[in-house]
């Protein structure tokens, strides 16, 4: 899938920072585009989605890392999917029970975390090759990186499409909401511009 990026297994800080910026799942690896585009119309669902992904990512990385020596190569994807699906279902049930409104807003996108590439990518690229601690740190780094990116994207879109951030009004009264920003087109344009900005900022550095 991707090249093994964790040759620096001993350096935990490196691993953590990789997920946050250098290998940010959305901006650098371009993984998990489906939730990125679909649930970033407002910050609150984006944050909920991000936290769910962190939970699933950490749990699946723990389990995969623990059983990494027992895995049969040709059955490993099956094991990954089974693990991920279990934790996603738990996250989905949890949201339904304690955050019913958010669960309704996110709709099918919570169960769809199962097919989110970031999680299976980390299971394959990191957890199945590294020890428990590195796997957990990697999961936290990647998960937080994903969540932050989602929130930035959602912040821009929510601000422009409703004049609010986190459901609190921030724009002055004369501001007319840009309805297009809450539509899919807004997601694509905002993502494109942010990607361009990130590329511009990191140009020549890596």
């Amino acid at each position: 899938m991707t090249k093994n990026s964790d040759t620096t297994a001993g350096i935990y800080k490196e691993t953590l920072l990789a997920g946050l910026w250098r290998e940010n799942p959305v901006f650098r690896l371009l993984l998990g585009m489906c939730p990125t585009l679909a649930v970033t119309a407002a910050v609150k669902p984006a944050l909920t989605m991000g936290l769910s992904v962190i939970f699933v990512l950490v749990c699946s990385n723990i389990v995969v890392s623990l059983m990494r020596n027992l895995l049969k190569p040709h059955l490993r994807i099956l094991m990954f999917t089974l693990t991920i699906a279990t934790f996603v279902t738990i996250a989905d049930l949890f949201l339904k029970a304690f955050q019913p409104e958010m669960s309704e807003t996110l709709g099918p996108y919570v169960p769809l975390i199962i097919v989110n590439c970031i999680i299976i990518c980390r299971a394959e690229a990191c957890a199945s090759k590294n020890n428990l601690l590195v796997s957990i740190i990697d999961a936290v780094g990647m998960g937080v990186g994903f969540t932050l990116t989602l929130c930035v994207l959602a912040g821009v879109r929510e601000l422009l499409s409703t004049g609010m951030i986190f459901e609190a009004k921030v724009m002055p009264d004369w501001f007319v909401p840009w309805a297009a920003m809450s539509m899919p087109v807004g997601a694509f344009i905002t993502l494109g511009l942010l990607l361009g900005l990130v590329n511009k900022l990191t140009k020549g550095k890596s």
Binding site: M67, L70, L71, K72, L75, M79, L82, T83, T86, T89
Partner: peptide
């Protein structure tokens, strides 16, 4: 491993 973990995960769910 698959069978055992299926049971475990099933129980968890």
């Amino acid at each position: 491993l698959l069978i055992v973990s299926s049971f475990c995960f099933g129980l968890l769910l």
